[in-house]
Simulated scan of single mutants.
Amino acid sequence: MRYLFKFRNLLLVAGIAFTFTACSQKSEKIQEYGKPALYWYNKMITEISTGYLEDADDTYTSLESEHRNSPLLPTALLILANGHMDEEEYQLANFYLDEYIKRYALSKNIDYVRYLKIKANFMGFAYDLRDQQLIDDTIADIDNFKKTFPRSPYMPLVNTMSGRLFMAKASLDKEISDLYNRLGKEKAAIYYLKKAKDSWVEPKEIEEVDVPFYRYPFERNMFLDRVYFK
């Protein structure tokens, strides 16, 4: 009984200590406001460099809310976008890139930001048999980029991504055409084969989608469902 009493007391003391520590940390975090823009910027850089991206997101929020006109904001947005791209968090990267485009559309390096957005979408194209809309949207962004920034130094990179996306689009249409052939639906097969040729002149050059064996049944079933219910 005496040992049980001591054990309960120990748990109580540990619980109280934890509560006070948590409250102290929370209080310290709440009190961290009214800092100069450079303070928040440097803190964000430190958090990114040490792998604490979520904390960096919160720190950027403090920077942006307390210093809305700071000249550090554009750079902070690009650093966060690149940080999330490095971690393959492409939706978050796009969030910061969209924010940059919305606020600094007349920036002299806006072509770089538009290029990064295309790259984020391209890198986010993870499932060749699923992301048809993402392909179409990114191809449209590339077309707009070429018209708006014909002399951009990023054009060779954009052209490379464009070629690979058109091949992916052709690959998808060729898969649908082959399926309709197996189903005996000749007109539909011819229609999708023509679409594949419109994206890539020679369908024989199209590389088949490389789907890992553990994901193959799942990906293939989603693909079939999309064709049947088109």
Rank of each mutant, 00 (worst) to 15 (best):
R2F: 14
Y3H: 15
F5P: 05
F5C: 09
K6E: 13
R8V: 11
N9V: 02
L11A: 12
I16G: 13
A17E: 12
F20C: 14
T21S: 09
C23P: 03
K26P: 08
K26M: 09
Y33T: 11
L38Q: 05
Y41N: 06
Y41W: 11
N42Q: 14
M44K: 09
I45G: 06
D58T: 13
D58K: 10
Y60T: 05
E66C: 02
P71N: 09
P71M: 07
L72P: 01
L72I: 04
P74Y: 04
P74T: 01
T75W: 04
G83Q: 02
D86N: 06
E87K: 15
L92C: 02
L92T: 09
A93L: 01
N94Y: 10
Y100M: 03
R103V: 05
D111G: 00
D111S: 06
R114K: 08
G124S: 09
Y127W: 04
Y127A: 07
Y127V: 07
R130S: 03
Q132D: 00
Q133W: 02
L134Q: 10
L134I: 03
A140M: 15
D143P: 08
K147E: 15
T148I: 11
R151M: 06
R151T: 05
Y154H: 10
P156C: 08
V158K: 00
S162G: 02
G163L: 12
G163E: 15
M167T: 13
S171I: 02
S171Q: 05
E175F: 00
E175D: 05
G184M: 07
A188R: 05
A188W: 06
K194L: 09
A196L: 01
K197Y: 06
D198Q: 04
D198G: 06
E205H: 01
E207Q: 15
E207H: 12
V211W: 00
P212N: 14
Y214M: 09
Y216F: 11
M222P: 03
D225M: 13
Y228A: 04
